[in-house]
């Protein structure tokens, strides 16, 4: 079970990183300031988890 949990954890962190990259990409591409602010707010918890801060 622990091995399975470790594998899922690695996949989970890869997903978090992937989502963060997508959010940053969308932040760069979008033209409206509301969406830019939204992407930044949504991005924060992903980065906090990715850097293992929260």
């Amino acid at each position: 079970m622990n091995i399975l949990m470790s594998i899922i954890t690695v996949i989970y962190y890869l997903l978090v990183a992937y989502t963060a990259v997508i959010l940053i990409y969308n932040l760069i591409k979008t033209k409206t300031w509301e969406k830019e602010a939204l992407y930044i707010i949504v991005l924060l918890p992903f980065l906090l988890r990715l850097f293992r801060l929260k």
Binding site: L27, I28, W33, E36, A37, I40, I41, L43, L44, L47, L48, F51, L53, K54
Partner: peptide, 17 residues
């Protein structure tokens, strides 16, 4: 604008982090 918003977001990240 993107740079300013990103800097603000970065500051939030730094302080909360």
């Amino acid at each position: 604008r993107k740079i300013i918003l990103s800097v603000l977001g970065f500051l939030l990240l730094i302080f909360s982090g």
